[in-house]
Design a protein around this nucleic acid. Structure first.
Lengths: 116, 116
DNA sequence: CCATTATATAAGCATACACTTATATAATCA
DNA sequence: TGATTATATAAGTGTATGCTTATATAATGG
């Protein structure tokens, strides 16, 4: 096992605190596969739009995720080019794959990304 | 990269929340090398005894650490035989090694473990 | 047995957090 | 332009968190 040593304890604690919330951890796990917009996350997680928006705003301000506007939608995705990305990635690797929740959205025709 | 899939998102969020505190993350990083008693952690982290006790109590109740009484002292160490251990270990691997803080304690003659 | 040392626990307090409801901003489309 | 859809933000609220001070428990050693 190599010693990675990417981040300080202080930076790390900040990231872990953000990921130490079930909703945000779920969002990050989902975005590890695909980019998603807020309304998709609202549908998948069955939570209110402001709540989801506030969660992704926190993830964005910590640079864990990036955003890309496309028309009405703002798509969020994991920011792979930041120093904490290896930490985030290695954490998410310990949890069950969340890819199927996106697949289920597609099957229900609720996937925004696929329509344009 | 293998998919580990040791813990649920919910269990994981609980662990990350606990590690999402600078003091506790520091304690866990230190204990990854050696067992320590509360008074050593008080010395190293320069925090009050009740504060340190409360932090290790939280780590213990989540089974991240175990305790061993020896005389007056209670030594805490990482619990390697719990399902979240691989997660904890892989997180700590991303941060700078904390072994030297213990070495410094020894040099100062403040190491309890070494006296008996 | 009493003083000392180590640790735990309880109570109090200021702050942070995650949600809610309401409203603002922004893009699309008829 | 006005209605609709998507998202952000602000304000309010109940709860959780991390510290403090004070006290309790437990082991040691004279």
């Amino acid at each position: 096992m190599t010693i990675l040593n990417d981040v300080t304890l202080e930076q790390g604690a900040k990231i872990l605190k953000l990921l130490g919330d079930k909703t945000r951890l779920n969002i990050v796990s989902i975005l590890m596969h695909d980019e998603c917009c807020v309304c998709e996350l609202v549908e998948v997680l069955q939570m209110s739009q402001p709540s989801i928006s506030q969660h992704v705003a926190k993830l964005k301000s910590a640079e864990i995720v990036k955003e890309r506007r496309q028309g009405q939608w703002i798509f969020y995705r994991i920011n792979e080019s930041v120093s904490v990305y290896p930490l985030v990635k290695s954490i998410v690797n310990h949890f069950p794959d969340q890819q199927e929740v996106i697949r289920n959205l597609e099957k229900q025709g609720l996937r925004v990304c696929c329509d344009n």
